[in-house]
């Protein structure tokens, strides 16, 4: 068991996957010689040579190339530096990967991965702080994962690279330096399986990505008032582990859904609808939705914190659910 940073765990997954499978190919802006702006691909260029490439700033084409290269035998792993740039890739995902994965049926597989990172809180401003989870989780045929712990970062990325379908890996810029234990033999983490980050009985805090960290802090606060909050880390946004959600809500009867994307038409809305569809009769209160305020993310710290939810907002939502 080793203590690893989240970024190191991702690096370990890439290194393992590239060692095991010569068709794994890593490309993106600044990923090769510099090792990635978040240092996730550090040392891989030296280890794997031309299978790790710096690219021009051409996200739209790079994503389309990842799709078509994967149709013809490559396992490309593309890094899109910020989730804010993901809209540039959307034609490749919505009109290419999603469509051909269906219309050509079993004649092709699409084993490509797009890694990107989103989230605010570091003063990166309106074009570098978004979490556009719903943009990608909306697309049929794609899988979307959002690891929170270093162990899951490694396990989910390994699983993503092995998967025959497109997988979007949503990392978070404020998680890269978090440290935790990663088992030496950490293998792939099955996609579509949520993780109970904390067991509880009074209210379910159902969260994604770094909002799991905030939800855990909220659970601490609620515990001081004698409230036992369960924290569910979804890990895979699509396909969604509906059973885990239903199991938790059936136990606590109160649900707070938390996602750092915008709220309106956002991923949290999907979670809320899922609970309505599958656990309505278990609800003892309306589902509380916690999401980023529906506006561009401002720069100044006092403004940014007013827009992106935190443990305080989650705590208040939990108390409203329990009222």
């Amino acid at each position: 068991m080793a203590i690893m940073r989240y970024a190191e765990a991702l690096n370990a997954a890439l290194r393992e996957a590239m060692t095991a499978d010569p068709s794994v190919f890593l490309f993106g802006e600044d990923v090769a010689d510099y090792g990635g702006v978040f240092k996730v691909s550090r040392g891989l260029r030296e280890a794997f040579g031309d299978r790790v490439r710096d690219t021009p700033i051409s996200e739209q084409t790079l994503a389309a190339m990842a799709v078509s290269a994967s149709m013809t035998g490559l396992r490309p792993v593309l890094e899109i530096m910020y989730a804010d740039f993901m809209p540039l890739t959307l034609d490749a995902l919505v009109n290419q990967a999603s469509v051909y994965g269906y219309v050509w049926g079993d004649e092709i597989t699409l084993p490509f991965v797009i890694r990107t990172q989103g989230g605010g809180g570091l003063g990166t401003g309106a074009q570098h702080a978004k979490s556009l989870d719903s943009f990608v989780a909306h697309i049929p045929g794609l899988k979307v994962v959002a690891p929170v712990t270093p162990a899951d970062a490694k396990g989910l990325l390994l699983a993503a690279i092995q998967d025959p379908h497109p997988v979007i890996v949503l990392e978070h810029k404020r998680l890269y330096n978090t440290r935790a234990e990663v088992p030496d033999d950490q293998g792939p983490v099955p996609l579509g399986r949520a993780r109970v980050a904390r067991d509880g009985s009074d209210v379910s805090l159902i969260a994604t990505s770094r909002m799991v960290v905030e939800a855990e802090a909220a659970a601490d606060r609620l515990a001081e008032s004698g409230i036992s909050a369960e924290v569910l880390d979804l890990r895979t946004l699509r396909p969604l582990d509906v059973e885990a959600i239903v199991r938790s809500v059936a136990k606590t009867r109160h649900a707070v859904v938390i996602n750092e994307d915008w709220g309106f038409c956002g991923y949290a809305a999907e979670l809320s609808a899922t609970i309505m569809e599958h656990a309505f009769d278990d609800l003892d209160a309306p589902v509380e939705r916690v999401a980023t305020r529906d506006m561009p993310i401002p720069f100044a710290e006092s403004l940014e914190t007013a827009v992106i939810p935190d443990a305080d907002v989650i705590t208040a939502a939990a108390l409203r659910a329990l009222a």
Binding site: P22, S23, F25, D50, R51, Q60, T61, A64, M65, A66, V67, S68, A69, S70, M71, T72, G73, L74, P76, D91, A92, N95, Q96
Partner: peptide, 22 residues
């Protein structure tokens, strides 16, 4: 065939990439 005008271009480029890398 591809009904998104222009999409056939990066598509072939990516297929050429896989041929080169593999």
């Amino acid at each position: 065939g591809n009904a998104i005008v222009g999409a056939s271009i990066p598509a072939a480029t990516g297929m050429a990439l896989s041929a080169q890398v593999l």
